[in-house]
Amino acid sequence: MSDSGLNGFRVARTGPLALLQDAGRFGVRHLGVTQGGPADLHAWAWANHLAGNPWGAAALEITFGGLVLIADRDLTIALTGADLSITCNRHPAGRWQTLNLRAGDTLAFGTPINGLRAYLAVAGGFRGDAVLGSAACVVREQIGGFDGRGTPLREGDGLTVYGTSATPAQRMAPHSEQQDYRLPATLDLLPGAQIASFTGRSLFDAFNAEWQVDQRADRMGVRLTGPRLQCSVTSLVSEGISLGAVQVPPDGQPIALLNDRQTIGGYPRLGNLTPLAASRLAQCMPGQTVRFRAAGIDRTLRQYRQFREEFCGLSHGGRDSPHL
């Protein structure tokens, strides 16, 4: 990967939200700065892997579609995650595989068919301005992205890519990795510190009832609606909040916190979604049904290590790994 940047794409039209995301911003929560990074770690990792990029390379996260890009040069890309009716020169673009673009080709993201967030990786990686060690774009905190100020893509923007000396070999993700986000989701959840403070009925409902994804969902968190959960703890001293934490506010409706969450919170927690469960939830449409499944730390760590080994041969989490 070269240090010099090259013009890769021009933004012809923007959608609701398109952000540059690398693996995320770690080691800074004591400063009140959240991690950012891809809402769907699984799809982001596969996009970079297919494009021949190392773990941590920056890719585009496109939510709800609407984005139109024009290639300024020949590029090799990979598209994963949601099916946003993506076309190249008005023809359907292949997903979960590498694609070769020619200068002048138009890549357009339409309306969601399957999932919410698509990922676009380019061979060599996108170049952004790192802030506190990461180019992950967090709009609320105005950090990261292509300009270092947390700005979403705007019409007329030029997207810089790193030079790459070779086109990656044609790759396709195994069919088993190409998730159907329309299916009901079962989310692995590690029981939390306050779980014993919930009533027995609430614990039964939490792990046996169906929950619906509310309209109030974004990169900060996803509110779920269903049975009212009751907890004897009504207030806590604020404590650190990790990716996937499931807080239960006074209305009894859980909120699963995602990448752009606040760094501390004082609501009791039912538990914590695993990183891959949080990724799956980030692809759920409003009204979609999900269930919680209690998970143990040993199986959770084993699954995450296996996932990481697919992309960088790590048998343990590194500095850019979500904390479980």
Score class of each variant (00 low, 15 high):
residue 247 Q to T: 10
residue 194 Q to A: 02
residue 257 L to W: 12
residue 219 R to G: 05
residue 203 L to D: 04
residue 191 P to G: 05
residue 269 R to C: 00
residue 223 R to P: 09
residue 202 S to E: 01
residue 203 L to E: 03
residue 243 L to G: 06
residue 226 G to I: 03
residue 229 L to T: 04
residue 266 G to E: 04
residue 181 Y to L: 01
residue 183 L to R: 11
residue 181 Y to I: 05
residue 194 Q to D: 14
residue 237 V to D: 11
residue 251 D to N: 15
residue 216 R to H: 12
residue 258 L to D: 05
residue 196 A to C: 07
residue 198 F to G: 03
residue 267 Y to I: 00
residue 220 M to Y: 05
residue 240 G to V: 12
residue 216 R to L: 08
residue 231 C to Q: 15
residue 180 D to T: 15
residue 188 D to L: 12
residue 250 P to S: 13
residue 244 G to K: 03
residue 269 R to S: 00
residue 270 L to A: 00
residue 248 V to N: 04
residue 263 T to D: 02
residue 266 G to W: 00
residue 205 D to H: 10
residue 253 Q to I: 06
residue 263 T to G: 02
residue 251 D to G: 14
residue 248 V to R: 01
residue 194 Q to R: 04
residue 216 R to I: 11
residue 181 Y to S: 13
residue 211 W to P: 07
residue 267 Y to F: 14
residue 186 T to Y: 09
residue 261 R to G: 10
residue 246 V to C: 08
residue 230 Q to S: 13
residue 233 V to P: 08
residue 207 F to P: 04
residue 241 I to K: 01
residue 247 Q to C: 11
residue 191 P to E: 05
residue 200 G to P: 08
residue 228 R to L: 12
residue 221 G to V: 09
residue 223 R to C: 12
residue 238 S to C: 05
residue 260 D to N: 11
residue 266 G to Y: 00
residue 245 A to G: 02
residue 219 R to S: 02
residue 201 R to H: 10
residue 202 S to W: 00
residue 231 C to I: 07
residue 204 F to P: 06
residue 214 D to Q: 14
residue 200 G to R: 10
residue 200 G to M: 09
residue 204 F to V: 09
residue 246 V to E: 04
residue 228 R to A: 11
residue 254 P to R: 11
residue 252 G to H: 14
residue 178 Q to S: 15
residue 227 P to D: 07
residue 212 Q to R: 14
residue 215 Q to A: 13
residue 220 M to W: 06
residue 189 L to E: 02
residue 223 R to M: 12
residue 212 Q to W: 07
residue 211 W to N: 05
residue 230 Q to G: 08
residue 236 L to P: 00
residue 229 L to W: 08
residue 267 Y to P: 01
residue 237 V to K: 13
residue 197 S to P: 06
residue 192 G to Q: 04
residue 184 P to T: 03
residue 244 G to T: 07
residue 270 L to E: 01
residue 233 V to T: 02
residue 181 Y to M: 02
residue 258 L to P: 07
residue 246 V to W: 02
residue 185 A to N: 00
residue 185 A to K: 03
residue 201 R to W: 06
residue 256 A to V: 13
residue 244 G to N: 06
residue 219 R to T: 00
residue 251 D to K: 15
residue 237 V to I: 12
residue 185 A to E: 08
residue 255 I to K: 11
residue 251 D to Y: 14
residue 256 A to R: 04
residue 196 A to S: 10
residue 195 I to E: 12
residue 217 A to H: 12
residue 189 L to N: 01
residue 232 S to V: 15
residue 182 R to Q: 03
residue 184 P to R: 03
residue 185 A to V: 03
residue 266 G to V: 03
residue 185 A to I: 05
residue 200 G to E: 13
residue 253 Q to F: 10
residue 227 P to Q: 07
residue 207 F to D: 04
residue 240 G to I: 07
residue 229 L to Y: 10
residue 191 P to T: 09
residue 200 G to D: 12
residue 253 Q to G: 09
residue 210 E to Y: 07
residue 265 G to D: 01
residue 242 S to T: 13
residue 223 R to D: 11
residue 187 L to R: 01
residue 269 R to E: 00
residue 192 G to W: 07
residue 209 A to K: 06
residue 229 L to H: 08
residue 248 V to H: 03
residue 220 M to E: 05
residue 247 Q to S: 14
residue 247 Q to F: 09
residue 263 T to E: 01
residue 207 F to S: 08
residue 225 T to G: 10
